[in-house]
Amino acid sequence: MAGTLTRKDFVSNQEVRWCPGCGDYAILAQVQKVLPEFGVAREKVVFISGIGCSSRFPYYMNTYGFHTIHGRAPAIATGLKVTRPDLEVWVVTGDGDGLSIGGNHLVHALRRNIGLKILLFNNRIYGLTKGQYSPTSEVGKVTKSTPMGSVDFPFNPIAVALGAHASFVCRAVDVEQKHLGEMLRRAHEHRGGAFIEIFQNCNIFNDGAFHELTDKPLKADYQLILEHGKPLIFGRNRDKGVRLNGHKPEIVTLANGASEKDLLVHDETDPALGFILANFAPPMPTPIGVFYVDSRPPFEAEMNRQLERAKEQRGVGDLRKLLYGGDTWTVS
């Protein structure tokens, strides 16, 4: 009955309890909007989370859900996905859950290319514990745990995912609803693990962290929307572009002698380009969209193929025969 699903089918009866104005609402709304369009039956969808504000997500989805241990969602989801590859398994995590305490599990899930769709809500702060700096907080950030400003160099989640050889890496923004929906769709369609960093505003403890990307007067000049096969153009008048000078990106103004053919054309299958884009820092615009896609087969497919091959070659096997056969002897 998957074809007849609507948004309502994915909305649970639980009262949503995030702070009023939290970016999580926008993400939840978009997930509930696009999931029915994927045509996957509810009972084939699972949301797994760890600990943190974002990790309340499974309560609000009328699908299978598992609110688990701090940082461990990718590990728990790995167990589920490899044994039930038919399920669509989404992991919801945050910059604390996914990159602090759970950094280990996250990079290995990505490295293995487990077919998980990992949503990392990045608000650059610990929200649930009321405002300490996180591993994505910028140097100098003043928080309750860094009253003199953080001296801790942050992670760049996209670069981490690329470094772990994730097979699908993209970035979205909570309130850019249409774009976010498109990224969710791409993640769903990708065969293998997908990593989606979502810039999410914590309006209580880190309000406006991404305002340049969301304020209407500013965002056209700060946002660079990545589209495969298209030149990198941005700006409110679409008059600014990015070109490479050696390996270094630079901004050019299209009216000043540069033309579109001089610009860098996005190729989402090029990992080197993905890294260059991941490391864009001011004055470069902030890229959103798909940084990198790799078509290598997911772990669970390879694992199950190996099992099938072994069965073909050696038969199904007999546990009793295994236990009582071979290298055993009787002590007399």
Binding site: H70, G71, L99, S100, Q132, Y133, P135, T146, D152
Partner: peptide, 8 residues
């Protein structure tokens, strides 16, 4: 010295 580490 104070360090906010990445886990307990």
């Amino acid at each position: 010295e104070t360090v906010e580490v990445e886990g307990e």
